[in-house]
């Protein structure tokens, strides 16, 4: 059962909190830009074009959009841990609302916030020589939204296993950073050692970034067919949504 009012108010709360804290917006936007320009410029001298299929900065760009989504979607969802720690989650849990509505509200907040940030990053694309047409923009936005939803739902699953804020650095170091490095964001999967390559194929972010590359730099180095990217993203999103409802209900 979905209670629209509940979904709506949970999303509104996250939006209000996010925009009230301007420094949060600045810092989450700064990270991808720093990576794009500082890491990207440094690496572009080292990586020959035949490996990435295009100039390195352009190759990196979809990866940076993926990074923006990864960080902001996970942060948004693990605010559930904050809500546990500061008690607010109890206020939600004693209310006569279905757990699915709560989870959906959280997942949609993460989707909205991280899509928004990813789209803001899209604006700088001309600076690195990507000039998307209307169709490309629309396609990217769709992939961005699906990927954001998928990662947000994953974030809720992660949050269900932790009780307190101390787990934050655990999640950063053992889940978020490995997911970023094993996603093909910074280097083509083809060049990875076999074990890592397999690990990367289990990472939904890999397919999101590959999907964005299909749209934004179709002549660059691609790992999977586009339809596979979309299929994996949609199916993992559905699975994660139901899994997150399940673990959320059980874990509280």
């Amino acid at each position: 059962m979905i209670e629209l009012k509940v979904v709506y108010v949970i999303v509104m709360r996250e939006l209000i909190k996010f925009f009230r804290e301007k420094s949060k917006l600045v810092s989450t936007m700064a990270r991808p830009l720093i990576w794009l320009f500082f890491v990207g410029m440094g690496m572009s001298r080292l990586v020959p074009q035949d490996i990435t299929g295009t100039d390195y900065m352009r190759f990196l760009f979809p990866g940076i959009i993926g990074m923006t989504i990864l960080f902001s979607a996970i942060f948004s969802s693990i605010s559930i841990i904050w809500d546990k720690e500061f008690g607010f989650l109890k206020e939600i849990l004693v209310a006569p609302v279905s757990r699915f509505s709560i989870v959906l509200g959280k997942a949609l907040s993460g989707t909205l916030l991280s899509s928004l940030q990813a789209m803001l990053i899209m604006i700088v694309s001309p600076l690195i020589g990507i000039y998307p047409e209307m169709g490309q923009i629309a396609g990217s936005v769709l992939v961005i939204i699906v990927l954001s939803f998928c990662i947000s739902a994953l974030g809720i699953i992660i949050a269900s296993f932790y009780e307190s804020l101390e787990s934050f650095s655990m999640i950063m170091n053992f889940i978020v950073m490995p997911m970023f490095f094993l996603s093909g964001a910074m280097y083509p999967l083809k060049k990875l050692p076999l074990v890592l390559k397999y690990a990367a194929t289990l990472n939904p972010l890999t397919y999101g970034i590959d999907g964005l590359r299909h749209i934004l730099i179709p002549h660059g180095m691609l790992d999977f067919p586009f339809y596979l990217d979309i299929f994996v993203l949609l199916s993992t999103s559905a699975v994660f949504l139901f899994l997150s409802t399940y673990v959320f209900e059980r874990g509280k």
């Binding site: 209670e3 009012k5 509940v6 709506y8 108010v9 709360r13 209000i16 909190k17 009230r20 804290e21 500061f86 008690g87 607010f88 989650l89 109890k90 206020e91 939600i92 004693v94 209310a95 006569p96 609302v97």
Partner: peptide, 26 residues
């Protein structure tokens, strides 16, 4: 219910906390 440890959202205003509750309870 008023829990032993406070369960308000401290970033929201008093009004917003109550409004959130109103939506939650339909």
């Amino acid at each position: 219910i008023v829990f032993q440890d406070t369960t308000l959202d401290k970033d929201l205003t008093a009004y917003e906390n109550l409004l959130f509750h109103a939506y939650l309870y339909g």
